[in-house]
Design a protein around this nucleic acid. Structure first.
Lengths: 227, 227
DNA sequence: GTTCAATTGCGTACACCGTACCCAGAAGAT
DNA sequence: ATCTTCTGGGTACGGTGTACGCAATTGAAC
């Protein structure tokens, strides 16, 4: 993890190190002190390249927007465009769970790369022929759905994957720890769901929900859904 | 805001005060020191009633689950049940924006009231005849969509409502501040959206997205969507 | 009423955080 | 060789959560 002692401090190195720390130990571990220590530099040196901690966080987000940029590999329809957007966003949220709390707490940082992605999505939607503002709102609805599902997916992953035990063992353990504060008998349906191995499998319903949403949009595009 | 000096410290008073502070000034303002000061008590006194700060936050969340508990006022179908759930959650997210970051960062706290709400939703879904696990996943998909849309709604509210100026003025100001770091000419579609008064109006597409989602579920319930 | 135990309130202190301020040293220009 | 500018970073301040230990209050038992 630690960087070379000699190489000069740059924004890129700082951002990359902060992302590496956040990936491994969570966002709160990526403090200015910690990043500086890992880079073998003084804390205040970072402020020569980054305005403050919030600025660093924003740069981390926009950095991911490059890595998970929307690409058209033979995309032929607005529907496939929205699917591409959803898949890239989903991957980003799963690979770097720390980005979701940032987006929620302070809004998506509209850096150049994030904006380029948005612009790409909007361009795909032009084929719908809908007014621009509706294109925007559809993009927001789909993005919102993806973000929301990623929240649940990340939560269940964080809960179940941490000790590296089998899902059934985890469920049993979770059940035990919950039963300590709560009378699970009062929540029979929840208890049964907790025992089910697919209780935390969201990918399947991510696809299902996305398809439902896109079907709704398609109906609107065809004009049968205008109110 | 400040509490009576004489009344004894209780969990309820602590939680209520923390919620009041978070509502007015954001979650980070509801620190242990601040809550204690507002209650005219010592900081460490709070720890007699609350395990730690995280515990306090969890109790705040479960407190809201009472206030925004799902109720059946003549609800006749699983579809209306999911709509009730969505509306209550939406209200909660809008009235108390601080709860979303908590849910995202550490998962929904499964306190007794939150669980009771979940149980209610599951019971509504029994009418679908789907396997329990699918009922669960549908609830999660709808909840996820609501949470995701609430993220965007809250972000745009926080951005646009703070100084109390008209939406157009805000858009112009936002455009100006963005243009300082970014060349907006490179993002023509985004620029046009930014100027539109409905750019931050999500309620309309919240309804649209929810309807699309429920239509998809309905198709599945009718068996026409089984793969 | 007195004594003892248990509960509640809280002051101090420590480790962490972001960062304002100022100074040392290196690099480049004149 | 001197002066300017830029980069690195040490110290210090005010914020955070909270471990520890002591005082005051309450409740029970005699």
């Amino acid at each position: 993890m630690a960087g070379d002692a000699k190489s000069p401090l740059t924004v890129e190195r700082i951002v990359a190190m902060a992302i590496a720390i956040a990936d491994n130990e969570g966002l709160e571990a990526a403090s200015m002190r910690r990043v500086a220590a890992e880079l073998r530099s003084g804390v205040m040196s970072l402020y020569r390249h980054v305005a403050n901690h919030e600025d660093l966080v924003h740069r981390m987000c926009d950095r991911l927007a490059i890595q998970y940029g929307y690409r058209d590999h033979g995309i032929s329809s607005w529907r496939n465009g929205l699917i591409e957007m959803s898949q890239r966003d989903w991957e980003m949220y799963i690979d770097h769970p720390w980005i979701l709390p940032i987006t929620v707490a302070s809004g998506p940082y509209l850096g150049p790369n994030t904006l380029a992605n948005y612009e790409w999505a909007c361009r795909q939607m032009e084929a719908t022929g809908l007014p621009l503002i509706e294109q925007h709102q559809i993009i927001m609805a789909v993005s919102g759905f993806v973000a929301g599902m990623a929240i649940f997916e990340n939560n269940s992953r964080r809960a179940s994957l941490q000790p590296g035990l089998a899902p059934e063992e985890w469920a049993a353990q979770e059940r035990g720890s919950l039963a300590r504060h709560t009378d699970l008998e009062r929540y029979p349906l929840f208890s049964r769901v907790l025992l089910h191995p697919d209780a935390t499998n969201f990918e399947k319903f991510f696809d299902f929900g996305l398809r439902s949403l896109l079907d709704g949009v398609e109906a609107r595009v065809r004009g049968s859904d205008l109110e």
